[in-house]
């Protein structure tokens, strides 16, 4: 019986099914912990740095909102988190997470915006799996590529210099740089589209 094809299929199928069950259980248990940790250890320090000296009235981590981005090509629901900082009852700064497909997987970026003068306050890589020494340099906050976003005007979006934009790539890591810039650009589009309506609330 062990050599019958249906038996092989059943054994492999049952093993894979149980494995999937176990994994979804573990994923369900760990996801909230991992999200909380990213919020506390990665997003909070970055936002504190970007919004430093602004004396915001609210705690933008506490007041975060979930932004519905519709569905992706495979029909899965896409969401992101929007952080808004208020001063004098008016939303003055915003930050949000976006991602784009890089060389080795998704690059997740946090972009902070100053809304009055339409400037990017700073960008921070939250996760990436790019090539060590090349694309992985997006993780280094001191990298000129990352630094150049600070103070950049985003009213026309951001794009690579080769595409008529204002961003210089990391040499040797074009794919990662393009993806990173695309993620930041996506954030600017989302902020332009969503933040005014959020300010009215």
């Amino acid at each position: 019986m062990r050599n019958k094809i249906w038996f092989m299929a059943v054994v492999l199928g049952v093993v894979a099914f149980l494995a999937g069950l176990a994994l979804s259980g573990v994923k369900g248990m760990t996801t909230p912990i991992i999200e909380k940790r990213i919020l506390e250890q990665k997003i909070k320090p970055s936002l504190d740095k970007f919004f430093d000296g602004l004396d915001l009235e609210n705690d933008c981590i506490e007041d975060r909102q979930v932004l519905d981005l519709g569905k992706d090509a495979r029909g899965r629901k896409q969401v992101t988190t929007l952080f808004l900082g208020k001063k004098g009852g008016k939303t003055v700064v915003a930050a949000l997470q976006t991602k784009a497909a890089g060389f080795g997987g998704d690059i997740e970026v946090l972009t902070a915006f100053s809304l009055d003068d339409k400037k990017i306050l700073g960008v921070k890589t939250l996760s990436q799996s790019e090539t060590m020494g090349l694309g992985a340099r997006v993780s280094n906050d001191a990298e000129p590529f990352i630094q150049q976003f600070g103070g950049m005007n985003y009213s026309d979006g951001v794009a690579m210099r080769s595409n008529g934009g204002q961003v210089d790539a990391i040499s040797g890591a074009t794919v990662s740089s393009v993806a990173f810039t695309a993620a930041v650009n996506r954030a600017t589009v989302l902020v332009e589209k969503n933040v005014d309506s959020a300010a009215a609330n």
Binding site: R2, N3, F7, M8, V11, L12, V15, A16, A19
Partner: peptide, 14 residues
């Protein structure tokens, strides 16, 4: 239980 012909696949899943 694991059939010899699919053992490597089963091992990898586990």
């Amino acid at each position: 239980v694991i059939p010899p012909k699919v053992r490597i696949a089963t091992f990898i899943v586990i």
